[in-house]
Design a protein around this nucleic acid. Sequence first.
RNA 1: AGUGCAUAUCCAU
Length: 280
Amino acid sequence: LINYSTMIMILGEDGNYLMAEALFLEVQQLGLRLDTFALNNMIRCYTRVNRIQDALDLYRKMPYFGCQPDTCTFGLLIDWCGKFGSRNELQRIFMDLRATPHKADAQTFNSMINNFSKQRDFTNAREAARQMRAWGIPFSSATYAILIHMYAKSRDSASAAEVYREYLDSGLEPNLIVYNNMVLCYGSCGYPEPAESVVGDIRRAGLEPDRFTYCTLVSSWGRIGAMPQARRWFNEACSTQGRPSIEMCNALIDGYLKAKEVNPANFILAKLMPDKGIKP
RNA sequence: AGUGCAUAUCCAU
């Protein structure tokens, strides 16, 4: 079985699901009993080539092979549904997941929440977070980052601030992505000043802002047309980071153009960027 | 023996 299973895995990586299918049948004809590993490998063959219906069918047939989906099975399917699937498909996986406790770890839930969020299904994203708590699975830094990012998308800075507060009190290792997402959330909601105050939290935690932080701050001030402040953060990034990121240059140009300040925008594009060796 | 998690700009959605 291990030989077949490994072959199926390798063929799947190669995109050759047809040969994998043939081997999958052959195992059964030999009378070998399939296990969850082998089924996951076969499911992976299908997701690899976007044959989601085949993947879902096999996943639903697992009990008839005497197997149960595990965290790996769910991880595969959640990831696929988030990338290419419909809301309904992801919701159905979530329902299955809830019906089988202990088949989900923090990573499974993180992926679930994030993929609901990508689909803008915020109700289910929050519900997944609630379920995670109810099952006593501790939030990781990634969980906090994902939740705050979700609130940035749904423009709910008040809920983000609550989650952020909980993160600061959690005793988890400081993680810059969590802070950056909080900057993003305030900025997206049109509150650049609280966004700036997060930089203080970053330093207090012993971290330094990175190119994501600076780009987000420039875009936050640019969004409300406050270009002097945007420019200040841009300059600070240039002096601390060495060279500005292309994304931050874009954010600054965009801000100037939204504010109808064409000349400064042109200066960034035609002078500053070439001088720093940055291609538009 | 295997799979799956998170951040920025613009555009598109």
